[in-house]
Structures are given as C-alpha cells and as structure tokens.
Design a protein around this nucleic acid. Structure first.
Lengths: 145, 145
DNA sequence: ATCGCTGCAAAAATTTTGCAGGTAA
DNA sequence: TTACCTGCAAAATTTTTGCAGCGAT
C-alpha cells in the first residue's frame, strides 16, 4: 500500500480512487488481465474504460505493472510483486486459456552471447509457452488427426 | 512455386493473383511484415486490404506463413522457408525497429521438462528479444539516465 | 457449373485523444 | 491554487464480416 503511494509520489502522480481500485483488482488476480476484464471487475460504472487504459499505461511506466502479449490482439497486465523484479513467463492452454506462471527463463548466458554477437545492448526478451493443459487433453484425447 | 500450388490444392484453395502476389512480397522480404505493409507493397489498388488479411489467415492455417507478435498491437507475417520447419526468433531494436533473425531457441529439454511438470502436451513457445542495436547505441551513447 | 475468392463497404474490437470539470497535494 | 485525473465523447487503429459479382478448377 505504501509502496504504491511512494511510487506515485516519486513520479508526481496522485493517489486516486480508480488507481487504487485497479491495483486492488490486479492484486486479487495473479494472472494477466486485459483492460476490459479489469474494467468489468471494477464495475463499469465505477471507472471509465479510458481511465483504465491510461492508468495501466502509467503504472507500466512506473514499473508497478507488467504488460504481456499472448498474441490474440489484446494486451494483458499483471502486478509486479513488491520489491521483486517480477520477471517470469506463462504457459497458456490453447484450448481453455488457462494460464500457469512458470519460472523457467531463457538462459542468461545464451542471451548475453546473442546480444554480444549482434552488438545489441540493454537486451530483454518476451517468452510465452503454449500447449494443451491436462484437463483439455483428457477431454479431447488424441484429436483424431 | 509448385510448393504453393500443391499446398493450396491440398486444401481445396485456389491459386489467385493476390495470393501469388502476397507470397511474392513475403519472398522478397525476409522480415516479418504487417498486413498494412504488405498491402502497401502490393500497391493499394492491386489488392484490397481485407484480402490481405484473409489470405494471411489462410496461409497461416496452411503453414506457409508464420505469425509473429512484437507486442506493438500489430501482427506480422513471415514466409516459412520451403521444406523447412522454419522455427526461429527475432531480435528487435526498440529504437529503430531493426529486426534480426536469430537461431537461438529455448532449450528443448527445458521445454519438455516444463511441459511434463505441468502436464501440458503439444507445447510450443513464442520468443522474441528486444534491445538497442549498435547503430542506435552509437547515436545515443549513455542515455543520460 | 461449381465453389472459392475479391473488392467494396460496413461493422467490431482495441486503444488513443480532446476537453471541461473535479480533486489530490 | 496548481497540477493532475476523471468521465464522456469522438477518433484512430487493427481486424473481421456481409454481399454481389468474378474467376479458378
């Protein structure tokens, strides 16, 4: 809670109702949420969708929130745990959209080697896994190729 | 050329002008292109944008083209080399949007271990690298934090 | 002669922006 | 009081869809 206030103050931003509510929603869900989902969770009459967009952009810029793209055309946001760097990836079921947080990461030394070879600096990566979760696999065994 | 015809015939699809033209554009560029870029390259009066969208969707479904998301809200497509599986990733300059194709890939055994641990099957991944290319780094040395 | 494909136009869906009034600091 | 924020509305993007006519097979 103080974390948010401190971060906002550092950027000359204000602690407003919508802001706190959005963070609260993200805190309750440990999965990346789309703007629309956050808006719906807030109750459409409590906060304008445009405000959700603006705030997520702001919070992302301050590093309180991280943006993810699962390739379906809608951005999703997840709260960065306090104090942590929060870098992690996801395993998404292509059938039911189940999202599992995974700690596997692209090997640091491989990434550095890659950066060096191409002369790139400040390198980062975006990595997501896709597949069929156990439940969906059970429900649809051997998809009759 | 016969490759396209064969693939299309297999799916009861027709070999049309726009189709060939789109493949031709993709063949000339070895980088992922957005629908709009392809449309512009074709000459807007030669092929409708909707047709570009429809064809890329079709070609993706047939495995002739692969879709990439660089997280900027627009999908990009790249030709899958004939015969090859064509799986690879990209290193993108966040300043000038330079795209370098890279052959590094997430280690197979790590991916399998991950899949096994979560009971997922048919696992794949999406991986892209981001950073600052040499030219841009030279043009903007030490961004004065 | 089919059945798929294209162009054109309209519609959806996602995200951004302008503006007047309201509110945290 | 001074910025910053919010809601509302409009606009800008990206992508999808309906439909009548054309074209590949």
């Amino acid at each position: 809670m103080g974390e948010l206030t401190a971060a906002l103050r550092k950027h000359s931003r204000k602690v407003t109702g919508p802001r706190q509510a959005i963070l609260e929603v993200l805190r309750r869900h440990q999965h990346p949420l789309a703007n629309r989902e956050i808006h719906r969770a807030l109750g459409p009459e409590n906060c304008d969708l445009a405000t959700v967009y603006r705030n997520l952009h702001t919070l992302e810029g301050m590093g309180l929130v991280r943006r993810y793209d699962f390739g379906d055309g809608t951005a999703r946001f997840e709260l960065v745990p306090e104090g942590e760097e929060g870098h992690h990836h996801h395993l998404i079921c292509q059938q039911c959209a189940l999202i599992v947080e995974v700690e596997e990461c692209f090997p640091e030394e491989l990434e550095q080697a890659l950066a060096r070879r191409h002369g790139f600096t400040g390198i980062t990566h975006r990595l997501e896994f896709f597949g069929l979760c156990p439940r969906c696999a059970a429900a649809r065994p051997t998809p009759a190729d």
